[in-house]
């Protein structure tokens, strides 16, 4: 029976380095998903606040589907769907070939569509908070539609949407734990391996939970710094 401190040390004896590597994977997955989800979410929100009914309908269908499915199911649908889809595509050309879907990419896509459907709601309510006069003012000084959006509306939109988006980041961090189910070596999976090998499940799952807690605390410091920076730049 090894002591707890040896198990938690850094190096070949201990497991801390493995779990820290898992934390690296978790954070990079979340960081890779964030821009994808925000960008898609912004365009979906743009469609949903449009005066064109067909665009609104298309946007609403997107949100309804990806907000309604459980994240775990979305993940499996993407992962196995891509696997089966690519496999049958490849069989057309080379019948004996086999391929695996990268679970990082699958996780990125699945978490990205979920994030984007929630982000679109945040952006939508921010759009509604911006008075129509802002657009009219932009047009009246000769800006084009795209310029008005980029130079006038977007800076205000981001400031209004920031608290909601910060919340989505924290939810995203929690949701990344699901990718351990499709075999990506994130915090939870690494802790699970350590727990099985050493037969100390409480210790290692406890450490995993503490890692997530530390990430949440760190994020809230980062979020506060960003909010302060945005506040300083905003006109009074």
């Amino acid at each position: 029976m090894q002591s707890t401190w040896t198990l938690l040390s850094w190096g070949p004896e201990g497991w801390l380095d493995d779990i820290a590597y898992g934390a690296f994977i978790t954070v990079s997955l979340a960081l890779a998903t964030l821009p994808l989800g925000l960008l898609v979410g912004f365009f979906v929100a743009l469609a949903k606040q449009s005066s064109e009914p067909t665009l609104r309908l298309a946007g609403n269908i997107y949100t309804t589907i990806f907000r309604g499915l459980p994240e775990l199911l979305t993940l499996f649908l993407v992962y196995f769907g891509a696997q089966i889809g690519f496999q049958s595509l490849i069989k057309l050309f080379r019948p004996d070939a086999a391929m695996d879907v990268n679970s990082f990419i699958a996780g990125m896509v699945a978490l990205g569509v979920v994030l984007s459907s929630y982000a679109s709601e945040v952006f939508l309510s921010a759009f509604r908070a911006i008075p129509h006069g802002q657009y009219e003012g932009g047009y009246s000084i000769g800006l084009s539609k795209g310029q008005t959006m980029r130079l006038v509306v977007l800076p205000q939109l981001i400031r209004i949407a920031l608290p909601g988006l910060a919340n989505l980041w924290l939810v995203l961090l929690l949701n990344t734990a699901l990718v351990s189910a499709i075999g990506l070596s994130d915090i939870l999976r690494q802790a699970g391996i350590a727990a099985r090998v050493t037969r100390e499940p409480f210790l290692f799952f406890g450490v995993a939970v503490l890692f997530y807690l530390a990430l949440a605390v760190l994020s809230s410091y980062g979020i506060r710094a960003i909010e302060r920076a945005v506040d300083e730049r905003s006109p009074r």
Binding site: L170, T176, A177, L188, A195, Y212
Partner: peptide, 15 residues
């Protein structure tokens, strides 16, 4: 602040 799945594992496997 922690994922539900990690909490569930902590209780089911951990205890």
């Amino acid at each position: 602040g922690t994922p539900l799945i990690a909490q569930t594992f902590l209780i089911y496997y951990g205890l």
